[in-house]
């Protein structure tokens, strides 16, 4: 697909036009906490240098609380009512490649056999404009899970900063192409050169572990000392899961709004909570934190790959940055790789 040269001011014009047409625009907040909704084009952030937001943009596709339907008891007659479809057309400006990559990964679980239209409608209505990433810290590990600061996976349009306030705008998806064609001023100047990705590779975060070895070890070693080592330190909050772009477990609960009405809600949930798997009888298949942490790692780096042929992780490092006790998942996986190497020798 084609690429174009665009300037920052053109991007601002795009945002302004979208706002005038009642599109919702999201971008990373200034404090880089989360993705916030913009009221003016001046708020949008297309910054490859910045740290990934503390909380991923997952909530724009999979909200922390989502109404599944309303129920109403009128004169003893019960009726169910669908919520309004998430109809707002949305553009996300300046997503990180490690954010964008989560969308197709999540799409697998939300669409095998049964289709979750809540997720799908949001994806359908959203254009993801990502920007090549030039940030990296000790928690980043996108290159260990098959991605890179230039991965276009999950993006509709992709920006590569070239010189000050100038970008290459790559069209990545058909949806992105259809979208950008509506804004002719964005596709005036075609980029005809080739972008030398090889040149950039030296600055990529270095690979911390070999995914294949990690997966192999996990497949063979269910019981191991490593889970106790991490499990005794892990405090069992769900910060890692909730800031994660790919964690998708949820709970379904009913809430009453009055005597005769209420709603059923889908809420984020996490395998790190003891209650997650606890049966009504009191029996809990994952009764301690070491088992729950093992589940988290296996789900991401073993089970999901087996099941959906995707790694349930984009290497964004949010879980590590946010962990109250600084558990570094990449370090855990490095240790696992060492165990696997030792097993081979």
């Amino acid at each position: 697909m084609k690429s174009f040269i665009v300037t920052r001011s053109q991007i601002n014009s795009l945002a302004a036009e979208l706002l005038s047409k009642n599109w919702s625009i999201f971008t990373q907040s200034e404090d880089r906490k989360r993705f916030k909704q913009c009221e003016s084009e001046s708020e949008i952030s297309v910054d490859g240098n910045g740290k990934p937001s503390d909380v991923s943009f997952k909530e724009l596709f999979f909200p922390k609380s989502e109404t599944l339907f309303y129920f109403n008891r009128d004169n003893e007659e019960l009726t169910l009512l669908d919520p309004a479809e998430p109809g707002t057309k949305t553009v996300i400006f300046g997503a990180k490649p490690c954010d964008a990559a989560s969308v197709p990964v999540l799409s697998k679980v939300f669409n095998w056999d049964y289709n979750d239209e809540f997720f799908n409608k949001r994806v359908e209505n959203t254009i993801v404009i990502s920007i090549a990433c030039s940030y990296s810290d000790e928690s980043c590990f996108c290159t260990s899970v098959g991605l890179s600061p230039f991965s276009e996976i999950g993006s509709d349009l992709f920006l590569i900063p070239t010189e000050k306030d100038s970008f290459i705008l790559k069209i990545v998806s058909e949806k992105g192409e259809k979208f950008i064609n509506e804004f002719p001023f964005m596709i005036q100047k075609e980029f005809e050169g080739t972008f030398d990705l090889e040149n950039q590779k030296a600055s990529f975060p270095k690979e911390k572990f070999d995914f294949a070895s990690v997966k192999e070890w996990l497949g063979k070693n269910f019981k191991d000392e490593i889970w106790n080592e991490v499990g005794e330190l892990c405090l069992g909050c769900a910060q890692c899961a909730y800031v994660c772009p790919t964690c998708h477990c949820f709970d379904i609960v009913d809430e009453n709004c009055g005597v005769s009405c209420g709603r059923r809600v889908k809420n984020w949930d996490s395998c790190q909570f003891g209650l997650f798997t606890k049966h009504a009888s009191g029996h809990n298949p994952r009764e301690d934190q070491s088992r729950r942490y093992r589940q988290r790692v296996n789900h991401k780096f073993n089970y999901y790959k087996q099941r959906f042929d995707e790694i349930l992780c984009t290497g964004c490092g949010r879980c590590t940055r946010g962990c109250p006790v600084s558990i570094d998942i990449a370090q855990v996986l490095e240790k696992i790789q060492c165990k696997q190497s030792a097993a081979i020798v």
Binding site: L235, W268, F273
Partner: peptide
């Protein structure tokens, strides 16, 4: 976001 990190 109800991660309950404050509690934990």
């Amino acid at each position: 976001i109800k991660c309950y990190a404050c509690r934990q």
